[in-house]
Simulated assay, not measured.
Amino acid sequence: MADPLVSVIIPNYNYGNSIGQCVDAALDQTYRPIEIIVVDDHSTDDSLAIARQRAVTVLRTARNSGVAVARNMGAAAARGEILFFVDSDVALRPDAIETAVAELRAHPEYGAVCGIYEDEPLIRDSVVEQCRVLQAYCWRMASLGEVSFLFSSLTAIPRRVFDEIGPFNPRLRQTEEVDYGQRMSTRYQIRVTDAVRGRHDDDDKLLPLMRKLFRRARLRVPLFARRRRFAKGFESASRSLAALAALGVLASLPLVVLSPWASLATGALLAVMLAGDAAMYRYVLRRRGPGFLAVFTAVAFATNVAISTGIAVGALQWLVSGRFRRLYDAQWPSTAVPAAPTVTRAPA
């Protein structure tokens, strides 16, 4: 039986620092046959020009519309039996596609095979980025097996499954992969494997990272409220409790000045935060040593505060806004999903 054509779909918006490495890694895969489609979401930097220098197909959205629309446009133009979505800040290992295809062919019950990020960044910009990459690695390693959401930045989906589930919700800009995973997991297994890997160029500044995590946590609330259970994967009960404990630590700090007994509560809350992700802290200690662990713990504390604050704000918004509660309604205007564009194929 002939190997299926794989369509590698790379959405891009202003990732000029990494798009070249991303596309080059896709071109350097051990698997054939593949086609590579870059969908530029109306970038304002030089990333579109960088993509056009490679022997790949390059499309462009009419306006900046979000990664869901870009992925949908790429899927509409794709000819492959398997769609491999990879974000433009990820560089795949050379065998990533070959391994993912083998998994899908061996397990027709899988709706998607998702990979993980390496524990080293694609571009080493700052200690914040090194901490965030280690955190993301540990969370994904803890999620190996079946999950109920999609790691859409590094995932392979059979075309027949994508056509059945439908496109990404074009109204969502931050949590489209959570919505898509929820829809898919009612019919198919979504599997995370550490055999499919890529290196990720993550956020390198703390405040932008915290803002992103805050927004994503807030926007997850309507879906979590509808589902009324924790997701399978890294959004576990213990990790959620750890995030809430970090917020409790922050809230209790002013009381320490008023009463020394309050320091006991602060210490207990900090212990809960560390215990909720104990395997992650042990891994960082083994990998980087105690000095780096201290810095890592501070960054992890900040990200936990951002996540728990986002959940708290989202819960309040869910109580007062019917529109927010309906954020994940299944229907959206058909005009929001792009038709197959006119495509100019780049020379091989």
Rank of each mutant, 00 (worst) to 15 (best):
A25P: 00
R227G: 08
R286C: 07
I37T: 02
Q174D: 14
E120C: 03
A268K: 02
P167S: 09
D28S: 15
N17A: 12
P108A: 05
V23C: 08
R32S: 14
I82V: 14
A271T: 11
K205M: 13
T309W: 13
R326F: 01
A348I: 08
R226A: 14
R211E: 13
E118M: 06
Y13A: 03
T155K: 01
R173K: 15
G80S: 04
S238W: 05
D46P: 01
R140M: 15
L319N: 04
V58K: 05
A112I: 10
V284M: 03
G289A: 06
K212F: 07
I34D: 03
I34T: 15
T266A: 14
A75C: 11
A302E: 01
I82W: 05
A242Y: 00
L274C: 09
T99N: 10
A346K: 09
A26P: 10
V337S: 13
V90R: 04
R79D: 13
R159P: 03
Q21K: 13
F234I: 05
M184P: 04
M280W: 00
A136K: 09
R187I: 04
N17V: 08
V23H: 11
G198F: 04
A102G: 13
A246S: 14
G166L: 04
I50M: 08
P341M: 03
E146P: 07
A91E: 01
L270G: 11
L253T: 12
S153F: 09
A49M: 10
E177M: 12
I34L: 08
L122M: 05
A275N: 09
Q182H: 15
A49S: 12
A142M: 13
G248W: 05
A78M: 03
